[in-house]
Amino acid sequence: MSKKQIIQSDMSSLLSAEEIAEIDAELAHVPYKSGAAIDALKIVQAKRGWVSDECLRGIARHLEMSDEELEGVATFYNLIYRRPVGEKVILFCDSVSCWISGCDDIKTAISQRLGIDYGETTSDNSYTLLPVPCLGACDRAPVMMIGDELVTHIDDEKVTALFGKAIRRAEE
């Protein structure tokens, strides 16, 4: 009806056929389309690393939600990224057990090596560093996730082994 709708109806073409197929598979077991909002956001993010404004609108159209409604959902959750992230996201646990085990110093070490603080991405786009609540591996603290991998018992050695390269690459 309004111009807005016309423009937005083109939006869903911003999602790939594959993404749409995966989202539709989720739709099969929710009674309302909007029920698959979080799944859809995750599907798109899995492919693209983050959810851009265009993708958000594309998903909203596809699920017959308003942009605002979906934005409200997307910005509520810690693991939906509304800004670009690096190739890998480091989810660094800063909750109590890891903290007792000295995670603050390790975070400083990682930050220094990668040249980024929480919420930032390395200049070579390889890592984004984010804090995460307790990862449920407190017996192996301190821990973090790099992409899908859980890294436990982090210490200086591990940090060097993991990120020694990253900082050099960034400097080149």
Binding site: S66, D67, E68, E69, T75, F76
Partner: peptide, 18 residues
Amino acid sequence: KDLGAQASHDHLYFGRHE
């Protein structure tokens, strides 16, 4: 449809998507 709550904790925001 075009106004709602966004974000959470003490950073809640009430507005439009853009």
